[in-house]
Design a protein around this nucleic acid. Structure first.
Length: 894
RNA sequence: GGGAGUUUAGCUCAGCUGGUUCAGAGCAUCUGCCUUACAAGCAGAGGGUCACUGGUUCGAACCCAGUAACUCCCA
């Protein structure tokens, strides 16, 4: 049977994934081993796999697989998030297509449709993760609206309410007019947008109304005009909601306005001029329109000055009757129309281009409208404190550490969390309203009734008198419980799972949800378990394209991860992702990394092919002792580096160390050293060692490249394997002895071989032509033991040790040892002299710099002794080399 | 406006408590090779005023101050 020339991922991936599943390798139940737990950041149930997931889950899988191979009981809990706004929007859209409007449905009817939709389309993303190789314990798959998880949400709500941490109040919230719901601060994405700044003239009321003809005034004129004051706003459509004009009391330009009143243009409502140093004098005109209903800062200013709140917007962003004009128009259309009306009325002084930050809804991308409404809030201050401490005292480690500062800043300035959403898809708020407007909080309608009867001392009340709050809680109010609720730690706080798996080990997530998810999970962990939910938080970067732009659907710059897997194989894509992903820094993704990953897979495949093709001859002696011993040391050395990198969560460096070990050390050096001549058999000892090394290499590769390694693992090259003897559960080798002298001497051998190849290249000598090599050793290295290797890889026919230099031969230095290769052609003395002179100049310069240190009293006094010793050694080496070089120069009579 | 971070080869990044010649890796580039494991490869080579300006130090990519550019978070 011939082996394919390249690795073919498609033939292995599904096969091994099913095999792993069939034999329950991903499954975890508590036992006596040490647990290693990761809970997945639950993707939206509506989501499809994008590059961010790809990165995130590759990292998790690498960590989980490695833990499994270190003998831990590894458990990776998967699941999805019900994503109320996003899912509800999808369901509404689906219904609309079928000609059904949400408003015509009852809540239960709507929810039936929603569940249907979820069952049918939800969770695709979990199947996509399987393609990537994610070794999740699928039996533990959870959904944030599962019965136990929902129950946990309700219980949590009640618990926090009783503790006084949840309250109801009118607050300015971020209103999403498209989703028609409030969203939390964290769900508002700010973007810089080109806008217009409208300068609008308000007539001052104590002056008689006259003179309209001054369109061409500049700003200074505007200020000097005492009949009008001019404000600058980006939102002219909200002037009808103005409650006052505010100026800075120190603003000398406007002293004449103190105590005055002005008219709102078009509707001619009279409003006061108020004074507050909140107003920045040098922004706009220095006059600020105060619109408490439609701006957070204005709201606060309004509260301070007891201004009325006039809300002129409907929930869908259209103007209502209170606006008096443009009623029913959408806010953006109204903006354009009112500009025209103001212009016609002579109230528009000018329009400027202006850039400013605008909030957009993360879920619907609608422009967020600040809106006053009655909402439920969760107090954060008290909970933030312990959650901050976990991170500050290192019980929860953020990786990289730079996020600690950001985290602290946020936790110290945390604001109360608006947890209600005006949606149906989610956990309905467990509050029941009584006819008198009071409310009770209870787990069920029956309990609510009892509470209500108790509260009102009215036993006549029936459930018909109660109305449950129609809103649901924020999705994050269920995801913050995730590390506890996936192990059913609320209903059954002492069950075997939660006691075993909690706290979890590592959380891998994006820094953008550090606050609205990570911080809150720590709060919940502390509140409900008295323990942080995880020990380490690995924050990945944002996947960007080559040009540094965030990958997004709208830009169309994101490759489909499944296409990438199709093209480069799951292992190739995993390697590609990790090659360019430093922790916490954004990564500039490019498919060329996947290509590199695929090439690497292919390299391993071909190394396998080579070994597989050898025939063993038991009668042969082992000529490769040195090579075998060297690779053993090198392997152990690399193992240490990899271990160290993992301990610091430097995954891309751990991968790179592995990559170089395999490609350079194993393939390029080791296999070349021991490779028998064409169609010659190999001795048994070398063969055995080589196969054993290869098996160890498969182990360290497995977390990165699970499919390829599992495929090779089962080849008969490695002998008969039991059904359950799989690479996925193989135990990683321990670090063995390292012969450092051998390692450094082989480095010299590599220099010699590189020099020989270099000479061949420059002198255009074919690799097939054998050369003679002599060495005049000054270092004490016994080159005899490396003779076989040098002869084989350098194609050297005769390798001799000499006491005197060989004249007329090409020569080079490796450390302080001199090597000679006699050639037929004579050496050009001019070229050779130039080379030697350059070498001498360099050495002289080097010596000078070393001597400068050694002759410097302050250096000798201050530098550590090993550094001084090091300088002395450098000096000795340089002098030795200089001596050789000068001798060569003298011999050539340069 | 407040805070954090980044700036090292064409690209992506290492460079741990300042101390092996003004620095490493992978990719890319250039040159030569279809040398029967691999052209998705092999061998060799080139490439950097460590953003800029000062300072501290015997010694600075690394510490300090300032400047510039970019990124992120918060308001």
């Amino acid at each position: 049977m011939s082996i394919s020339k390249t690795y073919l991922p498609k033939e292995t991936e599904d096969k091994w994934y099913s095999y792993w599943l069939k034999h329950n390798f991903f499954k975890s139940v508590p036992d006596e081993r040490e647990p290693y737990t990761i809970v997945i950041p639950p993707p939206n149930v509506t989501g499809v796999l994008h590059m961010g997931h790809m990165l995130n889950n590759t990292i998790q899988d690498v960590l989980v697989r490695r833990a499994r191979m270190k003998g831990k009981n590894a458990c990776w809990v998967p699941g999805t998030d019900h994503a109320s706004i996003a899912t509800e929007a999808k369901v509404v859209a689906m219904l609309k297509e079928r000609g059904i409007a949400k408003k015509d449905l009852t809540r239960p009817e709507f929810l039936t449709y929603a569940w249907e939709w979820k069952e049918k389309y939800g969770g695709i993303i979990l199947d996509q993760l399987k393609k990537l190789g994610a070794s999740c314990d699928w039996d533990r798959t959870k959904f944030t609206m599962d019965e136990e998880l929902s129950e946990a949400v309700i219980d949590t709500f009640i618990h926090l309410y009783k503790k006084g941490l949840i309250y109801r109040g009118v607050r300015m919230v971020n209103w999403d007019p498209q989703g028609k719901t409030a969203v939390s601060d964290e769900e508002v994405i700010r973007k810089e947008v080109n806008q217009k700044l409208y300068y609008i003239k308000y007539q001052v009321s104590s002056i008689k109304y006259q003179d309209q003809g001054a369109d061409d005034q500049n700003s200074n004129d505007l200020i000097l005009d005492t009949k009008y004051l001019t404000i600058a706003t980006t939102r002219p459509e909200t002037i009808m909601a103005d409650a006052a004009i505010c100026i800075n009391p120190n603003d000398e330009r406007y002293v004449h306005l103190h105590g005055k009143r002005v008219f709102i243009p078009l509707i001619n409502r009279e409003i006061p001029v108020i004074l507050d140093d909140y107003v920045t004098m040098d922004f706009g005109t220095g006059c600020l329109k105060v619109t408490p209903a439609h701006d957070l800062n204005d709201y606060e200013l309004g509260q301070k000055h007891h201004l009325p709140v006039i809300d002129i917007l409907n929930d869908d962003g259209t103007l209502n009757e209170k606006a008096q004009i443009l009623v029913g128009e959408d806010r953006f259309i109204a903006r354009k129309k009112i500009a025209v009306l103001l212009e016609e009325a002579g109230a528009l002084a000018k329009v400027e281009d202006y850039k400013s930050q605008i909030g957009f809804s993360e879920r619907t991308d609608a422009v967020i409208e600040p809106k006053l409404s009655m909402q439920w809030f969760c107090k954060m201050g008290e909970m933030a404190k312990p959650a901050l401490d976990y991170v500050l005292n290192g019980e929860v480690k953020l990786i990289p550490e730079k996020f600690v500062n950001t985290y602290r800043h946020w936790m110290e300035n945390v604001r109360d969390w608006n947890i209600s959403r005006q949606l149906w898809w989610g956990q309905q708020i467990p509050a029941w309203y009584l006819p008198n407007g009071e409310f009770v909080i209870a787990k069920s309608e029956d309990e609510a009734l009892k509470e209500a009867q108790l509260k009102t001392h009215n036993l006549q009340l029936t459930t018909a008198d109660l109305t449950q709050d129609p809103d649901v809680v924020d999705t994050w109010f269920s995801s913050w419980l995730w590390p506890i609720s996936v192990f059913d730690g609320f209903k059954d706080p002492n069950n075997a799972d939660i006691n075993y798996y909690y706290p979890t080990n590592d959380l891998v997530t994006a820094p953008e949800i550090l606050f609205f998810w990570v911080a809150r999970m720590i709060m919940a962990g502390h509140e409900f378990r008295g323990q942080a939910p995880f020990k380490n938080v690995y924050l990945t970067g944002i996947v960007r394209d080559k040009l540094g732009r965030k990958m997004s659907k709208s830009l169309g710059n994101s490759p489909d991860p499944l296409d990438l897997i199709e093209q480069y194989g799951a292992d190739g894509v995993r390697v590609g992702m990790l090659l360019c992903s430093p922790a916490g820094n954004d990564l500039m993704f490019d498919v060329s990394y996947c290509e590199q990953g695929r090439n690497f897979a292919n390299k391993i495949w071909n190394a396998f092919k080579l070994i597989k093709g050898w025939e063993v001859d038991n009668s042969l002696a082992n000529p490769n002792e040195i090579a075998i011993e060297w690779f053993d040391s090198r392997f152990n050395q690399a193992l240490g580096e990899i271990e160290d990198n993992f301990a610091q969560y430097r995954l891309s460096e751990a991968l790179m160390a592995t990559y170089k070990l395999v490609w350079d050390d194993y393939c390029a050096w080791y296999l070349e050293m021991i490779k028998p001549a064409y169609q010659q058999p190999i001795d048994a000892v070398t063969y055995k060692a080589t196969v054993a090394y290869f098996e160890n290499i498969l182990k360290i590769l497995h977390p990165f490249m699970p499919f390829l390694t599992e495929e090779l693992w089962h080849d008969e090259l490695f002998g008969e394997r039991d059904t359950l003897d799989c690479c996925i559960v193989a135990q990683l080798p321990n670090i063995g002895e390292i012969n450092t002298q051998l390692l450094s001497e082989v480095e010299v051998v590599k220099i010699i071989l590189t020099q020989i190849r270099n000479i061949r290249q420059t002198k255009q000598i074919s690799p097939k032509e054998a050369l003679e090599l002599s060495v005049k050793s000054n270092s004490g290295i016994n080159y005899q033991q490396y003779e076989a290797i040098i002869a084989k890889l350098g194609n050297i026919s005769v390798f001799t040790a000499v006491n005197d230099k060989v004249s007329g031969a090409v020569n080079f230095l490796a450390l302080t040892d001199e090597f000679f290769i006699p050639l037929n052609e004579s050496i050009d003395p001019v070229v050779e002299c130039a080379r030697l002179n350059k070498e001498r100049d360099y050495l002289l310069g080097f010596l000078k710099s070393v001597d400068a240190k050694l002759n410097n009293e302050r250096f000798m006094a201050n530098a550590k002794s090993e550094i001084v010793e090091n300088e002395r050694q450098k000096r000795a080496d340089a002098e030795a080399k200089l001596k050789i070089t000068e001798q060569n120069l003298a011999d050539l009579a340069c």
